[in-house]
Design a protein around this nucleic acid. Sequence first.
DNA 1: CTGAAAGCGCTTACAG
DNA 2: CTGAAAGCGCTTACAG
Lengths: 356, 356
Amino acid sequence: MASIKDVAAEAGVSVATVSRVLNDHPSVSADARTRVLAAVEALGYRPNAVARSLRTDQTRTLGLVISDVLNPYFTHLARSVEEEARALGYSVIIGNADERPDLQDHHVRTLLDRRIDGLLVSPTDGGSPLMLDAARSGTPMVFVDRWIAGLDVPVVRSDGHAAVHDLVAHLHGLGHRRLAIIAGPAATTTGRERVEAFRQALGAYGLALPDVYIGQGDFQAQSGRRATERFLDLAEPPEVVFAADNLMALGALDAVRARGLRVPDDIALAAFDDIPWFVHTDPPITAIAQPTGELGRAAVRALVDRIEGRPPESVTLPARLVARRSCGETAPHEPQVLQEPPASTEPSAATNRSQP
Amino acid sequence: MASIKDVAAEAGVSVATVSRVLNDHPSVSADARTRVLAAVEALGYRPNAVARSLRTDQTRTLGLVISDVLNPYFTHLARSVEEEARALGYSVIIGNADERPDLQDHHVRTLLDRRIDGLLVSPTDGGSPLMLDAARSGTPMVFVDRWIAGLDVPVVRSDGHAAVHDLVAHLHGLGHRRLAIIAGPAATTTGRERVEAFRQALGAYGLALPDVYIGQGDFQAQSGRRATERFLDLAEPPEVVFAADNLMALGALDAVRARGLRVPDDIALAAFDDIPWFVHTDPPITAIAQPTGELGRAAVRALVDRIEGRPPESVTLPARLVARRSCGETAPHEPQVLQEPPASTEPSAATNRSQP
DNA sequence: CTGAAAGCGCTTACAG
DNA sequence: CTGAAAGCGCTTACAG
């Protein structure tokens, strides 16, 4: 593979001049530029990004560590992250933690070793020593979707409180009183928050959330299956199961189906995170939709701000309820296509520095 | 960030010795090793992978350029690729071409600039000059799922001929005679092959595949929607629509639903590529399942063989029909869970060197 | 077993 | 505007 030396020789100039042409440095004569460009063309030369990174101490690469690529929500997020990063001149390397803290650490370590310019993380747990070190050691970092409290790291996420409240209103209106939730891991913010939001909303309707109506899941389908089976085995099973993510809803659907029961007649189902397939499941599934694309873009902008020395902003966007037939009723004209509400940012109080 | 020099100073040895310890070189005294390891620990030193790559001319990184990450088939593929790569000591950088040749070129170029050790590609088109150059210039490369003919590049894919034949037999048995297909781009092998397999199978039953029953899609949902609308507008619409991938099937479902029609009563639907959601759609969708995980793993093994100087093997695995209710009938005991058949490789005739 | 030194392919003050 | 030279952080013959 041709190196800068070869180009310099071919063009009859020094490597410094070649470098200047390649980097659009102003002080290069038109003649030198022409000759260098011709040599580059003739040799099919492409600068070695590894060498450049070593020298400039920047890789123009962002790391994205997500909990589970197979989860359509995170796939969507990853895609919007890559798009925005590309628009800003960065590449992104994705690390899939598969909801495993050890794998998450593996990816963080690998990414750090590669000297990525910044790290976007949706943490799988409460923060391993490595993750905390990374956050404190000054590696530019932004949390997206999930976060770890007590760190001076901007957070880009959506707030589901209002939507969960809307969901409970919807369920209550349909006459449901025994509502259960399949929670995510307590070590994750979204695992905890969604349960709390649900509990609060139930409280507003004078309903309790008994422990037996809280299934412990891990955001993966299998756990949704198991939790649902346990609910169905109860002397008094819930009338509604609210899965804290779309994969556990898939598992719940599997479990209900395996027993020969029907949604919503035998048991109602709702999910956090909306995905295109929810329109076509039997029945279409009521879900809380996050503005996923906008979250990904905002996260990249915050991270790049941080990398390039501008003050990064934490961003919180609202989620919203998309009611379909899986909890009962809901008219023929239910929503069909996912549509994201307009973005809004928190212009002030940037980081979650003061978080408990 | 601490460098090897800092470690050497701290341990009271030369950087050469530090390097030897880090790389498990045998000729290092136990004493030196201990002191170096202690220094590494004390400083929290991590070797700079960029510098190491520049020096050793290997990045231990694989590039994966896929057509569309949002397509669950490719997401699954990407995941298995990463798993196998990790097991073999490689990282992978994913480039999402989004079915756009220009984006595909962008990613190939970026990956090459980063000096990845090898490239796994599922080409979006027939081969841009850049892609052909890359393949010919000796960059270790393996095609997965889709390929470009006429290149000396191993191919890891699945063969759907038998499964498509099974599908047509199934459809014919249900009494369907007017069968249509939504094809992928003719520039892709899978776009062409699936139509040809379908045409052949129809021929075996004395059925023709008229041009109006071939919808031109691009493997994305929107194109499945449009093609289906066109079918439904025909004076004599088809009785069955076979979508050449799962996203176009989603689009077809959207279109059928938008007209207030029912599957399979008004029109039957089948898809290439099986995904977990197909069990829960209304109705469950008949699909041709590829051994996706095994394809990803085999592709990585072939690529790493190539990189490490062993002869790489092309691999072809069979796809299989999973009949559900979307084409009519099919019993209560239809399959529920995706299961991959055991792997099989072609031990001989490694590359598709002699392809037309 | 160990260290000094060269060199991977770049970029960038510095001097002219 | 241009080039010689230093240096980014490593690895690895080479000599001892």
